[in-house]
Nucleic acid binder design. Structure first.
Length: 359
DNA sequence: AAAACGGGGGC
DNA sequence: GCCCCAGTTTT
């Protein structure tokens, strides 16, 4: 494809974007902090899921200083249910670093941005181009798909060499001074027209210049990445009441659902016996479990929990002081803790059930 | 290079 | 219900 054609397509994409861009909250601001927040939320997450969180997040943390100066608990309470909680912690960590090292102003160059926690090649390119006008590409999954089809690139778009090739093709499309608009145009096209399956080529501004379309190859380009087989992990949780309060346990600061509050439980034990032993060993909690009161399955990206939930009754004489690592909260105060969506079936069961277990 | 890390939407 | 999606960090 000639340089002149590429330049023409870049201008075409920007013009298409001006008239077809969805009206999204983060497109109404030029505040680098707010653009940055949106890009982090949009990592691995669809626009529709992000929108309600974005407004609430900025209401709670209107500025970089507000985010840097608040607690991780307050952060998790707002991020609860959005998933990939590590990116939230890295966002806050980066905000503190920007406050300490850059006087609260984000670096304007992609190299400086990329040194911050949670800022990979994509996010650094997106913030640099959209917020600061830097002429660099921002290759997310949508852009990679559009570019792979436009140039009919064979092979899976995953290897380091392949990613460099896609980034170079994307950079070549940038009209002078229009990097932010071009990058967003590619993302918008991938999200609304150049869909993974059944793309709407009839609506595409690239029209006859798309190689994959001309070849009738949009179904096999790009080649889908291989997926790991999900592992199944039996799990069990306990709903333990004491004096009108419920026990919650905090997850470890790293790993799955890190730092979130769950009903106390154990992965790898789908029955009361081992779970009772775990509650005694880990929390000093002496309960007899009666259950299951509820069963649910919840799928994660590369693992799958098949969980049971048991109702618990405290044995006589066991007070909360002996329960290590647990908090006791009223039902009405459950939502003050960051509880992941994986435990929504338990919360719904609690809401629906009029009676409870009493010590 | 491969695995870990959530949740929501499509079919 | 199962499959799909796809940035960054860690291993």
């Amino acid at each position: 494809m000639s340089r002149a054609t590429v330049a023409r397509l870049g201008r075409l994409l920007v013009r298409w974007y001006r008239t077809h861009a969805r009206d999204l909250p983060w497109r109404r601001t030029r505040d680098p902090y707010r653009i940055w927040v949106s890009e982090v939320m949009l990592q691995q997450t669809r626009v529709k899921a992000v929108v309600p969180y974005y407004g609430r997040f900025l209401e709670r943390f209107p500025t970089l200083e507000a985010l840097a100066g608040s607690s991780e608990e307050a952060l998790m309470a707002v991020w609860q249910g959005l998933g990939y909680y590590g990116r939230a912690r890295r966002l806050q960590e980066a905000a503190r670093e920007v406050r300490a090292r850059y006087g609260g102003r984000l670096p304007a160059e992609p190299e400086g941005l990329a040194r911050l926690p949670g800022m990979g090649a994509y996010t650094a390119g997106a913030v640099a181009s959209i917020a600061f006008g830097a002429e660099v590409p921002a290759v997310d999954g949508n852009v990679a798909r559009v570019i792979a089809r436009l140039h009919a690139l064979e092979g899976p778009v995953g290897s380091a060499a392949e990613r460099r090739a896609v980034a170079a093709r994307a950079a070549a499309l940038i009209p002078r001074g229009q990097a932010g608009a071009l990058n967003q145009a590619l993302m918008e096209l991938g999200a609304t027209v150049c869909l993974p399956r059944r793309p709407r080529c009839d609506l595409c501004p690239l029209g006859g210049d798309c190689r994959a379309r001309a070849l009738g190859a949009t179904g096999r380009i790009p080649e889908p990445a291989r997926r790991a087989t999900p592992r199944r992990v039996p799990a069990a949780f306990a709903v333990v009441h004491r004096g009108g309060r419920l026990a919650l346990a905090r997850r470890a600061p790293r790993g799955l659902l890190a730092g979130l509050w769950l009903f106390p439980g154990l992965e790898g034990a789908g029955e009361p016996g081992p779970l009772e032993g775990h509650l005694r060993a880990a929390h000093g909690l002496d309960v007899r479990l009666e259950g299951p009161v509820l069963e649910f399955r919840h799928a994660f990206s590369h693992r799958r929990w098949e969980a049971s939930v048991y109702g618990g009754r405290l044995a006589a004489g066991q007070g909360p002081r002996r329960c290590r690592g647990l908090v006791w909260v009223r039902r009405s105060e459950l939502d003050r803790h960051a509880i992941p969506s994986a435990h929504r079936p338990i919360l719904e069961w609690l809401r629906a059930s009029q009676r409870g277990f009493r010590a």
